[in-house]
Design a binder for these strands. Structure first.
Lengths: 235, 235
DNA sequence: CTAATAGTGTCTATTAGACAGTATGTT
DNA sequence: AACATACTGTCTAATAGACACTATTAG
């Protein structure tokens, strides 16, 4: 945004003498629901490698909600935008840099945080777990999260995030942000199925997805069945 | 949210002694992009009554951006949720109550407001202009807004709002919040066309929209051409 | 060979686009 | 009658669902 120019001396005075402390001390945080995919280690070779959608969580060291899991996030500081703040906190809490993120929703219930009034601007982030280097954070299976005691309203935020993902998956290319560089159509279909919570028919899926894909020329192998073509996302 | 229970004495002490002022004084506001439809008065009787999408604006009395138009909105107070705050400010700035609203996006650029750091949670609101009683606010034609000098980044917020509306119109029933109780299919089609920015084919539109409509049994008249059936939204 | 998954072809059902043609009011 | 818009019918094109069938690897 370009710098604001006061129109007259009177306005200059007004702005100089303006006292921000008249407004309530409401803190603003950013929190990220970070999604990734991990292969569950299935030893049985005659079985499709199952994949799971995971969410990256950190364990709280301090009160309140000590020892509970929470979304990585932190307070927005004075000189930084929401996105700046997100980048900084993701780096410091999880070691991650350059993560694709988009705003999810802003949560403003009054008693979200027992310390003080905190309004949280939540983001959805997606990444390729094979490339990402994680520190001090754990990939948690999405299905397990409702069993956990989550800090604050973070369980609710995750639920909203998965709803948004489900809503956007069919008319955007958002999933590709969490796919590895090269993948098979079956793997991609599995990710769609996990997010949508329903099985899809393979021929129809291939048909609709194929214009977003580019053949790498490579194949998978050693899988106990017909090898599969590897594709990459065609931008 | 249920009340948080500290787990031990230590945590109780922590929370009692917690000092919120260590966090930067960032103010939070809510702003609403309120959409409505108004008939442009076309005297020429042999012409379809044109309708326009309008946005409700208020003129600023104070610095900064004195005498510019702005979105109705205001600061979020300590004890109220974002939605509470939206209800309160809409009432006080425009006289409106019971307006359908949904969250749009949170704007957090650092220099949005020359007075201090302000993060704004923006909402989209839709209403039936025939029923709404407005005070101290003006319905501005959407097409005129880029010509105006808008306060803060409100011009940008309006642009995002119309984009969101465009994105949601075809897979939600959001438009009906701004339709009058009874309307013709042509009127409804016009609203779709204004929001989408393109002409639609009438037969296809009738086909797809008709399962959302309920016949009132009434007809329009005196229009210089064949009368039109009046419908209402079928929930 | 069998088991297991990869991938193709095709029939059908549904939906969207295009447009001709009919209906019914006002002037 | 002329005009203007309302409304219907129908042909076609594109897309989605269902499912049978073929292909290719490991063991």
């Amino acid at each position: 945004m370009e710098k604001y120019k006061p129109c007259c001396k009177e306005e200059q005075d007004f702005l100089r003498e303006y006292n921000p402390s008249q407004f309530s001390p409401i803190a603003v945080t950013v929190d990220a629901v970070i999604f990734g995919i991990e292969k569950d280690n299935v030893d049985n070779y005659r079985k499709l490698d199952e994949q799971s959608i995971k969410v990256l969580l950190v364990k709280r060291d301090d009160y309140p909600y000590k020892d509970c899991y929470s979304l990585p996030g932190g307070f927005v500081l004075e000189g930084e935008t929401l996105e700046d703040s997100l980048r900084r906190t993701l780096k410091s809490k999880t070691g991650l840099t350059n993560v694709y993120s988009e705003q999810l929703y802003t949560f403003g219930e009054v008693d979200r945080d027992p310390r003080m009034r905190v309004i949280s601007c939540a983001y959805i982030s997606l990444l390729d777990t094979q490339k990402a280097k994680i520190k001090n954070a754990i990939w948690m299976n999405l299905d397990c999260i409702k069993e956990l005691r989550m800090a604050f309203d973070h369980g609710n935020i995750i639920e909203e995030a998965i709803k948004r993902l489900r809503g956007k998956i069919n008319y955007t290319d958002i999933v590709f942000h969490m796919m590895p560089e090269e993948f098979t159509i079956s793997e991609l279909q599995q990710v769609y199925e996990k997010i949508l919570g329903e099985k899809l028919l393979a021929p129809a899926f291939r048909r609709t997805i194929s214009d977003k894909l580019e053949d790498t020329g490579k194949m998978t192998g050693n899988a106990g069945h017909r090898p599969s073509r590897l594709f990459r996302y065609k931008k």
